[in-house]
Structure formats: C-alpha cells, structure tokens
C-alpha cells in the first residue's frame, strides 16, 4: 500500500481537486441544433449495430486532457463517433479531413 496512487484518467472526475471550488453552472438549456444532431446520429448508429455506448465512452476517454476540457459535450461525442466509424471502415478518414 506504500506505492503512490497514480493520477485518475481525464474523464474520471469524481472528487477532482481542480473543480473543488468551481460552482455548478445552473444551465438548464436543452442541447443546441449541433448537439441534437450528434445525439441523434449516436442513437441511429447504435440501433444499426454500428457502435455501442461503451465504444462511445472509450472514444471520449481517448481524447487528450487539454482537448477534453476545451471541447463541449457533444463535440467530444462527435470526435468519438466519427473516429469509431473510421476505425470500423464505415467512413474513410479522408472524407473527414478539411
């Protein structure tokens, strides 16, 4: 038990000291059009058996820490979902490049 505890993964936020003194923003607004579209894609692709919620999470958890905190909620989802569809060959990486 003497070995030091490694730092949590970026997404593993329970108790994270960096947010200890951050008030919770009382924002009740529903997602914007961008968010709703990403949300819908996730559900459709899951229903078609092309991805699972567990894979969605794995993709979100792979986002580097600075990017994770810079991106909005559905921006993280989009990074994960589009990455998964490339990984599975559903779309090609070139199609997503600017």
């Amino acid at each position: 038990m003497s070995d030091a505890t490694p730092a949590p993964a970026t997404h593993d936020l329970g108790g994270a000291p960096r947010f200890r003194c951050t008030p919770v923003e009382p924002d009740d607004a529903p997602p914007d059009a961008f968010g709703k579209r990403v949300d819908a894609l996730r559900q459709i692709l899951a229903r078609k058996g092309l991805m699972s919620v567990d894979e969605l999470r794995r993709g979100i958890e792979a986002i580097p820490e600075a990017e994770y905190h810079a991106l909005g909620y559905y921006e993280r989802w989009l990074r994960s979902i589009s990455g998964l569809m490339v990984e599975k060959g559903v779309v090609a990486a070139e199609e997503l490049r600017p």
Binding site: V38, L41, L78, V91, L96
Partner: peptide, 9 residues
C-alpha cells in the same frame, strides 16, 4: 467536422 461526417454517412 459534423458536416463532413454526415455527408460521408
């Protein structure tokens, strides 16, 4: 990215 992703799908 969303536009390109949807277009590809």
């Amino acid at each position: 990215l969303l536009d390109r992703f949807v277009a590809a799908l």
